[in-house]
């Protein structure tokens, strides 16, 4: 499309149409108010519910977009773990409640069909409802698929972080050990008590920017701390504190990460069940690549075969008619015989 906004060519003649209708109505002057304000529409449960679900799916998709952004950002200052978890839970709830609502819709669909049946509707109303439900299912499964992808990305990221963490652990421990007992003693004696007393900030990676790499990623920063700690290990008290941080950080951090991975994976498994319920939709996507005139060809074919069937029926019927005629003649003969000769 062109860069500039372009008006699509069309000409709205609703006003002209209404004016003509108004004029005609006045001239006929049968019933005033025919061309009044649009009547208040009463809508069936089915229509209302499906519209609501559609809007909800759209809202969920928007949340999902936000989550995808969060899951990708791994900036140092703004670790999104909390938000990601919150959003994950919200979206998970959304999806499962939508899934439940879709089941309710199928009930409303039956009601709607009964209602349309009463109003002379039939097959077309049925396929309308079926298509509505299909469309919703498809949208829901697309959203669920998107959610799954985001979670996959997230769990991969966490796993990468953990791997790095392990490496860092392996490299960091000997350095701490080489420092001798000072660090450990100090930790045991309570000079690191401040750190232990407030473990919460340690769960999340350090927020203070490091001078050499202010905008680095969390993972790299963690390793940097390790290196810093190892290098400064000989440097006395500061080094000792750092070393202690290392000791604390990995275990807590790892725990939280492991939990995160677990929750993400359990969510993926839960999504699997939703997928199973929606599977039938994905299977029947084939016909959607058809063109609208393909149906006409099919209709022509169906009409042909119907005609053939009718023809066959007609032939059997005419065969029967011959038999009926003969029967009638026999009866007539018998009656005349009975009337005149018996």
């Amino acid at each position: 499309m062109a860069a500039r906004h372009r008006e699509v060519a069309m000409c709205d003649r609703t006003g002209e149409f209404l004016a003509i209708a108004e004029g005609l109505a006045r001239r006929i002057a049968t019933r005033p108010g025919i061309v009044g304000p649009p009547r208040v529409r009463t809508r069936s449960d089915f229509t209302q519910m499906t519209a609501q679900i559609g809007a909800d799916i759209y809202a969920t998709t928007q949340k999902l977009d936000k989550l995808a952004q969060l899951a990708q950002s791994r900036s140092l200052f703004d670790d999104p773990t909390v938000e990601v978890n919150e959003l994950t839970i919200i979206i998970k709830q959304d999806l499962s409640s939508l899934n439940a609502k879709l089941r309710d819709v199928q009930l409303a669909m039956r009601e709607y069909r009964a209602q349309t049946g009463a109003r002379g509707g039939g097959r077309q109303a049925e396929s309308h409802t079926a298509h509505v439900v299909d469309a919703l299912k498809l949208q829901l499964s697309t959203a669920a698929k998107g959610f799954q992808d985001v979670l996959q990305v997230r769990s991969n990221n966490i796993r990468v972080q953990m791997d790095r963490q392990k490496q860092f652990e392996g490299a960091g421990r000997p350095a701490a050990g080489a420092m001798g007992g000072t660090g450990a003693q100090c930790g045991g004696a309570g000079c690191g008590g401040g750190a232990r007393g407030a473990p919460a900030p340690l769960f999340t990676p350090p927020r203070a920017p490091l001078p050499d790499e202010p905008a680095g990623r969390i993972v790299e920063t963690v390793i940097d701390i390790g290196r810093l700690g190892g290098a400064a290990g000989a440097g006395g008290a500061f080094g000792a504190q750092q070393a202690q941080m290392q000791e604390m950080l990995p275990s807590n951090y790892l725990e939280s990460r492991a939990l995160a991975v677990e929750s993400v994976q359990s969510t993926i498994v839960e999504l699997g069940t939703i997928f199973q319920q929606l599977q039938s939709v994905v299977a029947e996507q084939q016909h959607l690549v058809e063109r609208i005139d393909a149906q006409v060809d099919e209709t022509v074919m169906t009409v042909d075969s119907t005609q053939r069937q009718l023809l066959r029926l007609y032939q059997t019927m005419s065969g029967n008619r011959l038999a009926m005629k003969m029967l009638a003649m026999v009866v007539a003969f018998m009656m005349t015989y009975g009337a005149f000769f018996a």
């Binding site: 069309m10 000409c11 003649r13 609703t14 209708a21 025919i34 061309v35 009044g36």
Partner: peptide, 10 residues
């Protein structure tokens, strides 16, 4: 008439 929401030349 009131149900005719739009009449448009495309």
């Amino acid at each position: 008439v009131s149900q005719v929401s739009q009449v448009v030349d495309q």
